[in-house]
Design a binder for these strands. Sequence first.
DNA 1: CTTGGTTGTGTTGGATTTCT
DNA 2: AGAAATCCAACACAACCAAG
Length: 382
Amino acid sequence: MSQKKLHESLKIKEDDRFPSRVSGYCNWESIRLIKSILSPKQLDLFRATCFGHFLDVSDMVLSGQFCHHILLRECHVRDVDDTPSTFWFYVGNEVIRFSAVEFCLVTGLTIGDSSESPSNISKHMDKRLHQSYFQDGKVHVKVFANWFRNLGPNNNVNDNDMVKLALILFLEMTLVGKDDRNAIQYWALQLVDDLDAFNNFPWGTFINGRTFDSLSTCLVGRDDKYKERLESPAKWKTEKYNVYGFVTSFQVWAIEAIPKWAMLGHASRVNNVTPRILNWKCTGTPSYVELYDNIFKYKNLTISKFLVPSDEEVTKLYWAGIDQSHFPIDPMIVSPEECDCGVDDDDYEDDVHEDIDNVEGDAEKKMMMVRMIYNIQMLVMI
DNA sequence: CTTGGTTGTGTTGGATTTCT
DNA sequence: AGAAATCCAACACAACCAAG
């Protein structure tokens, strides 16, 4: 992969990189709450669900600056046929990939068919939980969390319901990661009443999609905004954005992709199990400049281009939905001329279609090559 | 020790988008 | 069109740290 091309494909040019404050709505207080309120028996039941392993996640402090540095290095890429959306970041002198593969290996959440909309799935289910605990009224995340907190450890909610409500609490506060003034997703409260259906739901696809949407839009247009702001008389010069969704998955992936982060002491390996989110404790929140000086300015940085599942991981249920041939091991770099920057929305669709028509043959060939190389690499690794 | 800068976090008004 | 849901961003504040 030519460095020059990679450089040109950056969504934000090197000279336009800007400092910013970053926060996420992914709140791990849910796990602390659940641990303090559920009985040992209820915790065992929770542990057996699709979110059970998250009980063992260590401290997860978000380093907004670390995430920001990576997001600043996003490349323009072309999606290949039905390829699920994939990020490529130009870090050091190479690219690193964040796709559903990485999300899956980090979180242990299943990737699967999500053709049917979630609210449709639970349409026919009754609203028993909603009615018995909230009289079918509005339930905002904050209200729900407070209600849960006030239950205390000695409540009279039965074991099964307690586990179901805890699942929703974790889903809303941590995985979905949104403003806590928003309402919880009522369809999830219906779905959870059928635990089997809930456990089999492709949460990985759902949460990854949400996280991807937020990560891919949070920087759009912000470099220009930053410049404007610097020149304006506004008192408030700092750029700031919030990331929705499950940012922790992005950070833990980044820790594995850029080993220097852990070497500098910002994260420490506490385990060697699956999924990988259980292996890391995150404590460091170094500044933007410090990160540049110690990590991002280096061109010979050691990185992991993409995550490769271990022998153990390929046997896991959550891995079953992944078809690796759908995930290119090299980005389909798009040059600035082909990118959508500065193109009006109306014209954009047509432009894209033209582009695809022009390069379809090449893209096909390239993908075949990519898949071949990938298969060979996989064989070598095994 | 103080000071000033940077960070994450919490709270909030209000703008924007989506739903009905 | 109007309401509800969702998101943006302006603060305030405490913890931390490095320089003076």
